[in-house]
Design a protein around this nucleic acid. Structure first.
Lengths: 231, 231
DNA sequence: GTTACACAGATTGTCAACAATATTGAAGGC
DNA sequence: GCCTTCAATATTGTTGACAATCTGTGTAAC
């Protein structure tokens, strides 16, 4: 539920004295997602103050927002820490994503234009090529672009916001997933079925294909060892 | 995504000087959901300060949390206002609830105990009685209890939190729905199908029944006139 | 009569200092 | 040696004041 502040008002070149709340929030989120702060690590306000050149007030506002995104946890009088997402929670989150992305795929199938269908097909072609060339990093990027494009076609703001929030909570787990041997070979045909169903304007098929795809992601998640310390 | 502060530390009898952030947030949410602040109405920090006997800092923290719940909207330098939920958004929100409650119903069917099944059946009996006696207010309460119990049985924290958040955004629309003539007669058999499927541990049937039920809620929503000014 | 401008009031954004709380380490008793 | 107690430190919670921004109104020019 991204309650967007208008970042448009943020001066572009401003540097030393202070950073605004939205800037600080985005920078901190990027740092957490980038693995600079590990799960369980405490986020001390004073340190963040120095790092982001922001006042404690601003830092605190940013922390509160990230807490509502589920990226960090705040305890009264004990401050904030990067949230640890257990495997069980990762499965739950992915289950929710499964039904939401299914909904979104169905709606995309109902609203897709010919141009959009062509763009989807193009991503599909590139995915196939990436798998053939064993460019798994590129494949992972395409995967993200495919899901993003489907969500854009669907134009379902409510589902979109929730999916995006959940995605943030899973970056570490998803990173590990894409490293699993054999995953791309498994997911490629699933992706192609989704693309085909959307292209054919077959909403139920699109939903089913997307759910199948993410269900297999859940299975893959479950094969991971329970406590994956770090990466 | 309720990032719960521990309210346990809040003194029980404390009154005049100051209220804590969690208290203020809950009180303000109750006020909004209770219709004391209408959609579009501005929430001026100073007024809230007086009403809830809290500092501006506390009020602001509460506002930020409610914004992330989607109950209010905040714009930079222009403050907070109660969010207007359009009919189209209400439909979107209910679509998301449809797939999430479907997921939850399926999981409840997998995990239900005999005692829980009996409790569900009891609610079903009371619903039937309420409809027969035309006690629609009571039926509406039972409806809420039924959905809550199913979510409790499922024990799916992620889905549960999102559903609860979305429910808050719809209180006004849902209130109007329960007033629609004929709704209880339509939804009662749907509810009974959900209960039966869960009782039979038939997860796919439970999901399908729940989705059918909420799909009919969406249809009912769409029959409402687009801009229902107030009530 | 209408539009543009400027000013005043109201409201929010930010800061620095102070108070309250939790954590850590050491000293003392068992 | 181990546990409890207590003080010192680190960290967060809260406040009030000041700065920046927006909104509405009245005036003057056209």
């Amino acid at each position: 539920m991204p309650a967007e502040q208008d970042e448009a008002t943020a001066p572009p070149g401003r540097r030393s004295p202070a950073a605004t709340a939205a800037e600080t929030r985005d920078a901190l989120r990027t740092a957490i997602l980038g693995g600079e702060y590990l799960p369980g690590e405490r986020l001390v306000e004073l340190q963040l103050t120095e790092r982001f050149r922001a006042s404690r007030f601003t830092v605190r506002a940013a922390l509160q927002e990230l807490a509502s995104e589920g990226l960090i946890e705040m305890q009264r009088n004990r401050g904030a820490m990067v949230r640890k997402v257990s495997l069980a929670e990762a499965v739950e989150i992915t289950e929710v994503r499964m039904v939401l992305e299914g909904l979104v795929a169905a709606r995309a199938a109902e609203r897709v234009t010919d141009e959009q269908a062509a763009a989807l097909a193009e991503i599909g072609r590139q995915m196939r090529a990436a798998v053939a060339a064993e460019e798994f990093r590129h494949y992972s990027d395409l995967n993200q672009r495919l899901h993003a494009l489907i969500r854009q076609i669907a134009g379902h703001g409510t589902a979109d916001g929730i999916i995006e929030t959940l995605r943030g909570q899973l970056v570490r787990h998803q990173f590990m997933l894409s490293m699993l041997p054999g995953r791309p070979q498994t997911s490629l045909p699933q992706h192609e079925r989704v693309i085909a169903a959307v292209r054919d304007r077959d909403a139920p098929a699109a939903e089913a294909a997307m759910r199948d795809h993410i269900a297999s992601v859940i299975e893959a998640l479950r094969t991971l060892a329970p406590p994956p310390r770090a990466f």
